[in-house]
Amino acid sequence: MNPAVLLVNLGSPDSPSVPDVRRYLNEFLMDPRVIDVPWLLRRWIVGMILIRRPKQSAHAYQTIWTPEGSPLIVISRNVQKKLRERLGLPVELAMRYQNPSIPDTIHRMARQGIDRVHLIPLFPHYAMSSYETAVVRVQEVVARQAPHIRLTVEPPYPDHPDYIRALIESARPWLEKGFDHLLFSFHGVPERQIRKTDPTRSHCLIHPDCCHVPSPAHATCYRHQCFRTAELFAQQVGLPKDRWSVAFQSRLGRDPWLRPYTDEEIARLARSGIQRLLVICPAFVSDCLETLEEIGIRGRETFLEAGGREYAQIPCLNEHPLWIEALERMARRGLADALQNPQSSSDPGPVPTVTPVTPS
């Protein structure tokens, strides 16, 4: 057996130039699990977005770009290196969109003679536009390019003790500085996608207080899993319910997305008298445009303009030692399972059932 670990993150433009940002946005937004409408309508929507959005996004990327490149790519590569050193095994990195691409990475692994791979999506919470699309893409590429590879997949880990512990310890220096309120800002998704990933078709956003009433739907419910992470974090640090809240950022278009919206919640908190606001983004394990620019820069401006006084953003897990340790444990357990359960590459393993979407 020749085992390896594959980490998959979202991705980034190759540079903050308008052409590279346009190329990235086109690939990202044309994914039928991101904009989940029929192909012709999706092509029209994306075409309209690509008229102006690349220039705006390129400017935003320029504000957070480093001499080494995209923060998300640089951090992910550092995590890859540290995990490889701890495991003593091959650890590869791929991005769902752009580079390093999943096909190129799988091709390289196959050429190295790797025959067992444990996939760890760098998305703690199940969403069709992040976790699900990454898993499905890897499965498709493995089945086509390297069917001899036996693939196991790390399940979503929104309440995994190692993940929660790493979140808390990475946030502790900021928690100890003092604050009035802690805002958990998760990436938003359209409400229709929450309903689509509900296998019962009768619970999510239908049942009163659906996220806190036990249901099989929770295995693939992004909203429930976000609240679960926030609640465990708050409980374990002893934070009273009136000192924290949850919001969702980065909405696109006019359809209803998960509420409350982060930008509106930041302004509301300032207007309600909160003077010292602390923001954490647990859905992102690596700092990126959405955390550094949207939350770190624009969020701060929104809070101060609404009357707040002190604003701080807790960095993502990035390369925190406890996060690397958590990944190591996931990898070792996953590879051990692969040895004991020689399943085929087409078997998703311990991943919740993937929701079908309209073919592209």
Rank of each mutant, 00 (worst) to 15 (best):
residue 20 D to C: 13
residue 113 G to E: 00
residue 292 L to G: 12
residue 112 Q to I: 06
residue 258 L to M: 06
residue 310 E to S: 00
residue 223 R to D: 00
residue 283 A to H: 00
residue 347 D to P: 04
residue 262 T to M: 00
residue 351 V to L: 11
residue 168 I to S: 10
residue 182 L to A: 08
residue 255 D to C: 00
residue 111 R to D: 14
residue 261 Y to D: 03
residue 68 E to R: 15
residue 207 H to F: 04
residue 271 R to G: 00
residue 12 S to F: 12
residue 204 C to K: 01
residue 209 D to H: 06
residue 186 F to W: 07
residue 90 P to A: 04
residue 108 R to V: 05
residue 316 C to N: 12
residue 4 A to F: 07
residue 306 A to Y: 03
residue 78 N to E: 15
residue 14 D to N: 15
residue 105 T to S: 11
residue 231 E to M: 06
residue 358 T to K: 13
residue 35 I to S: 13
residue 350 P to S: 05
residue 253 G to S: 12
residue 190 P to I: 03
residue 272 S to Y: 04
residue 125 H to L: 14
residue 188 G to Q: 05
residue 106 I to G: 02
residue 318 N to C: 14
residue 132 E to F: 07
residue 61 Y to D: 09
residue 60 A to V: 00
residue 264 E to A: 07
residue 41 L to H: 07
residue 137 R to D: 14
residue 38 P to C: 09
residue 191 E to M: 09
residue 60 A to K: 06
residue 252 L to N: 11
residue 247 A to I: 03
residue 25 L to S: 05
residue 254 R to N: 12
residue 192 R to F: 09
residue 187 H to C: 05
residue 185 S to M: 03
residue 83 L to N: 08
residue 175 L to K: 09
residue 344 S to G: 10
residue 124 P to T: 11
residue 292 L to Y: 09
residue 26 N to Y: 10
residue 262 T to I: 00
residue 285 V to R: 02
residue 273 G to C: 08
residue 87 L to D: 06
residue 204 C to Q: 03
residue 115 D to E: 07
residue 229 T to W: 05
residue 83 L to Q: 06
residue 225 Q to S: 01
residue 142 V to L: 12
residue 334 G to K: 03
residue 229 T to F: 05
residue 25 L to E: 09
residue 228 R to S: 03
residue 270 A to E: 02
residue 264 E to F: 02
residue 211 C to Q: 08
residue 56 Q to A: 14
residue 230 A to H: 01
residue 301 E to K: 13
